[in-house]
């Protein structure tokens, strides 16, 4: 081990390690599995370590989440490519389904239903969301990031972040209420 390695380790410990829990949460929500998330975070940790000199002093949490997000996508592309499919056709199907269920929702007190929802139902409902929708929802609701930060991490225009977030919430509510009723 030489001096250069020691410095990289210090930087890695300073920049990446404090956000391991965040890293794991993002990977778990995106992959839908603890075990897969462990794989992803391990890989992301190595990428982060190798790339630590590229960290130019911005927000370390956003830097960490960007690496985890990108690693999750490459992991999914390799191991579960169908999870990343997001076509307009699929969207249209979801929209039709959503339109039907929003009629049902009008007759159903959503809040009362959600109050009874258990963690397992939420996880199942989240798993029904396409990853690009799940991603913005997790970055917003779990990580508490604002639209600008989400746009940077997911490499999307803010308008797309907003529309995906709106649709992700609608789809999630639909899935949760459909399951609970």
């Amino acid at each position: 081990m030489n001096v250069g390695d020691a410095t990289d380790q210090d930087r890695f410990a300073e920049v990446f390690l404090p956000h391991l829990v965040d890293a794991f949460r993002l990977a778990r929500w995106l992959s839908g599995s603890r075990i897969d998330a462990e794989d992803i975070v391990q890989e992301a940790s190595l990428r982060a370590f190798k790339g630590i000199r590229g960290f130019s002093g911005g927000d370390p949490r956003a830097w960490t989440l960007t690496i985890v997000r990108n690693t999750s996508y490459s992991w999914l592309a390799k191991n579960r490519p169908s999870a990343l499919v997001l076509t307009e056709d699929l969207d249209q199907v979801s929209r039709d389904r959503m339109d039907q269920s929003s009629e049902a929702l009008e007759r159903t007190p959503e809040a009362a239903l959600i109050a009874k929802v258990e963690a397992e139902q939420i996880r199942k409902a989240m798993a029904t969301l396409p990853v690009p929708f799940r991603e913005v929802l997790v970055l917003r609701e779990i990580h508490g990031l604002d639209y600008r930060a989400i746009a940077e991490i997911a490499e999307l225009p803010i308008g797309t972040v907003m529309s995906r977030l709106a649709r992700a919430r609608r789809k999630l509510l639909e899935a949760v209420c459909g399951d609970a009723s």
């Binding site: 959503e110 959600i114 929802v117 929802l137 779990i142 919430r169 509510l173």
Partner: peptide
């Protein structure tokens, strides 16, 4: 209210 509950359920 429904979306706020959904948020707290997620968290």
């Amino acid at each position: 209210e429904a979306y706020r509950l959904l948020r707290s359920a997620l968290r």
